[in-house]
Simulated scan of single mutants.
Amino acid sequence: MDLATIIGILLGIGAIIVTILLGSGLGLFIDIPSIMIVFGGTLAATFVAYPLKEVLGIIKVTMRLFIFKIEKPEDIIANLVEISNKARKGGLLSIESDIKNASDPYLAKALQMTVDGVKTGDIAAIMQSKMALAKKNLKSGSDLYASMGSFAPAFGMVGTLIGLVQMLANLDDPSSIGPKMAVAMITTFYGAILANLFFIPMSGKLKIRCDEEISNMNIIYEGVISIREGEHPRLMEDKLSVYLGPNHTPSEE
């Protein structure tokens, strides 16, 4: 579970509620027509901009923001080094047990092709294709939330304009100008909150998730190709350690 996402949302909502309560009641900031135009308009624009399948998949994408588990790069490298050592000593067939124990389907498929004697070029092509597809699927969720982050403020302004038109149409009643102006501004408030507390930050978090997963897939890709080519495990570890940053020092044998 990603506590940072949960903490951030709760802190944001809490700060807004406390600020409102210090100056007025929450009821002043609740307006059903404003909610309808901002939420409904944002959702409608998203349906227009994206295929139905991607929009309906927003629930699955959103779950990745809160429930997300990814293997540490150093653990992946350590596992690949262990497999490489085993393959170097006992041959490629000796790593069949590692295929069954692999929790990552991408790694399992790559190792299976290696054991089956598939040519290095073919393994590389298949793995790169799978990586490109995974990146596309991960990126689509981030792009969708980024678009919603631009739609929400726009429909907030639409709601404000509707409110202003309705207010100007009733200037003969001065006592209603204040309340109508307040309602007109609430839609802008809703749009800003949705965009800047939810949609845009969620898009950014999904981009980070995408980068992490693709980085891990790159480690597996390069590691399996090294194993297939029979490279020395130490050389492979040195090559893969670049994914751990400049402060990492490969282990000594």
Rank of each mutant, 00 (worst) to 15 (best):
I59F: 15
F189A: 02
T120D: 11
I35A: 14
L206P: 03
S175K: 10
L93A: 11
M1Y: 09
S175F: 05
I7V: 12
S94I: 06
E252K: 11
L43Y: 12
G25K: 09
A4C: 15
A169C: 13
F189M: 03
S251Y: 13
Q128T: 14
V61Q: 14
G178W: 09
T42C: 04
M185H: 00
E96L: 08
I208E: 15
L144Q: 05
I67L: 15
S150C: 08
S215Q: 11
N218W: 14
A184M: 01
A184C: 08
I126D: 08
Q128E: 13
Y145H: 07
Y145I: 05
T120S: 15
L164C: 06
P201R: 04
D31G: 03
A192K: 04
L138C: 14
M113K: 07
A182Y: 07
I193H: 05
G27L: 00
A169W: 02
Q128M: 11
K89N: 12
V183G: 09
E74D: 14
Q112M: 04
G149N: 02
E229V: 01
Y106V: 11
G163R: 05
M148Q: 01
L28Q: 15
T249P: 02
G12M: 03
F198G: 11
I186W: 01
L197D: 06
I214Q: 10
G223R: 02
L194R: 02
S84D: 04
F29D: 10
I13F: 09
G156L: 08
I200R: 04
A124S: 14
G149H: 04
E96Y: 12
I6F: 13
S34E: 05
G156I: 00
F47W: 07
I17R: 06
T188N: 02
K60M: 11
K69Y: 14
L21F: 05
G25H: 01
F189W: 00
I59P: 07
P105D: 03
L161W: 04
G156Q: 05
H232M: 10
G91K: 12
L92P: 10
D173W: 04
S251R: 12
N85Q: 15
N218R: 11
Y145G: 07
L194G: 06
D143T: 09
M127T: 00
D104E: 13
L197R: 04
E82M: 12
F39P: 07
I186K: 00
L56W: 13
G149K: 03
S147A: 14
R234D: 11
K109W: 04
L111T: 04
L133H: 10
Y106H: 08
A108Y: 00
D211S: 13
L164S: 10
E231P: 09
G149E: 02
P105W: 03
K136G: 13
T249E: 06
N101W: 06
I200D: 12
N137F: 07
T188D: 01
K180F: 10
L144A: 09
I17W: 01
D2I: 09
S94T: 13
P179S: 08
I77F: 09
A132L: 14
L111W: 04
E253Y: 15
G141T: 06
M185Q: 06
I219M: 08
V115S: 08
M63Y: 13
M202I: 07
N79H: 10
D104L: 00
M181G: 02
G57D: 00
Q128S: 14
A49H: 08
L65Y: 10
V38G: 01
I7K: 08
I17A: 06
